[in-house]
Nucleic acid binder design. Sequence first.
DNA 1: ATGGGCCATGCAGGATTTGCATTGGACCAG
DNA 2: CTGGTCCAATGCAAATCCTGCATGGCCCAT
Lengths: 290, 290
Amino acid sequence: MDIRWLQDFLALAELRNFTRAAEFRALSQAAFSRRIQSLEHWVGTALVVKGSQPVRLTEAGEQFREGAGASLERLLETRAAIRGSQFEVMSQIRLAMPNVLARSDFRRILAAIGPKVQSSFSVIVGTTAEVTARYLAGDADILLAHDCPALPSHEALATQDRVVLREDRFLPYVAQGRDFGFPGSAKAPFPLIAYAQRAYFARLFEHVLERNGGALAYRLSVQCDMSDVLKEVIAAGHGVGWLPESAVEPGAGVVALGGAEWELPLEICAYRPRRAAGPKLDALWAALRG
Amino acid sequence: MDIRWLQDFLALAELRNFTRAAEFRALSQAAFSRRIQSLEHWVGTALVVKGSQPVRLTEAGEQFREGAGASLERLLETRAAIRGSQFEVMSQIRLAMPNVLARSDFRRILAAIGPKVQSSFSVIVGTTAEVTARYLAGDADILLAHDCPALPSHEALATQDRVVLREDRFLPYVAQGRDFGFPGSAKAPFPLIAYAQRAYFARLFEHVLERNGGALAYRLSVQCDMSDVLKEVIAAGHGVGWLPESAVEPGAGVVALGGAEWELPLEICAYRPRRAAGPKLDALWAALRG
DNA sequence: ATGGGCCATGCAGGATTTGCATTGGACCAG
DNA sequence: CTGGTCCAATGCAAATCCTGCATGGCCCAT
């Protein structure tokens, strides 16, 4: 029995959807499904109700959720406590952040805290889902991530200490001098540079779509995983794509398309567990607040 | 992180010896050693002190032992509770027992409880170490095993409900009509049919040896894993070997060698967890007591 | 009906784990 | 100091387990 199975199950219990939970746990849906099966086999009972949408837990599942959650919490806190007490020795703070922040804001963050906090770092970078999962699994002390106040964020993050580092915006960009007839029409849809299905920003874009009914008429042009790649594709003139403002440095060759209705507010946040940490981490946290 | 690593670590903390703990966990010493390393890597700290005999835990190790133990207990109890509440549905009692009991006492046990308890069974058979480990891991509801009052038994079993099914003895046997000059002399040691290193009974024999100083002069003749095999080898006239009396049915072609000093008292016991179980299990337990 | 979203499963490639055999170190008796 | 014994770590090959991809079957909403 791997405790990752427990974490999978808890994510499933919360998100009530195999595909989303798999995504969140940074795993294929197939592998995720089998992990849940393995867990059910280990427990000896079905934990989720078959053929039900959205996913519901069986009675045993509810019972197990509580016990497994408490058990897991105890274990991870034990580990965190041990790591915390060894903090001065190892004096390495583990940061997790999605690619886009690593490429834009990390330098600023480093500059801000560098002189105040003396410590070595290790940095975990990946997709938003990946780094969030790893942070929650205890693989990192601090998580940096975008958060969209307009969208429900993951419940597990609601229990963390949180500080807003700065405001950001999610809005459409296009290559300098181009236009593509945005926001498009049924006859002449604009070409969209979209995020791959699994990306966090893909959900933000979907939210923009929903909010505007059919006012956006697009055709899919390119799909990218990372904001940086997407930005390059936009700059190369392939179409319109949404980016966080923070990812667009001057001279990138892309310009924003106006219109508040196409825009979503974002926050760049730092998270850390509520439990006690070491002095170095406290100092870093204070620096982030200030 | 596999929770088996936690169980390994807890066994190690208790037995303070990699080899013994590996044996108890039914694993090679090499694999066991690596699992501990994996766990240490997961926690992020050394848990056991290097180069120390017997094994000692680091401070972090002690701390982790407590947390991991509590976490594991919570998890396994949750599972057990779920299984317990589903007992009437599945109505299958899972018995674990070492080979020797499966071949001798199980029939009697079955006969004794069969009419009183209506339930289907599943039976796990293996070496004593294996089935004990599996029982403690929650893979069985009841464990049947030999216990020697003269030897310290495993601590983890001390916390279980326990009932003595009957008395037994561990004593030397030889082929009918043979003798081999037992207990032997330096010039003419008797040939010993011994248990393989890993077997539980091998430890009992070692205890007999220690108790008698150098009074036993033997030379190793054959080594066997299982009592039944050993019995056959004795009957074939290859030498003297220790057996539990219960394993020797009439007409087996072997006879006991007298002398209380070569003998060890044994109990055949049943164990079950202290936590609440289902009605079927309670009925079976009552039948075992009576 | 039919299309789309969702979970289960066959399969092949790949990562991890295991046991065996061996090495290197600590401890002990002489 | 020395040889022997007990113990844990490690190289290596085999086996096991896990993963992702592609696909199939199911249910629900249109």
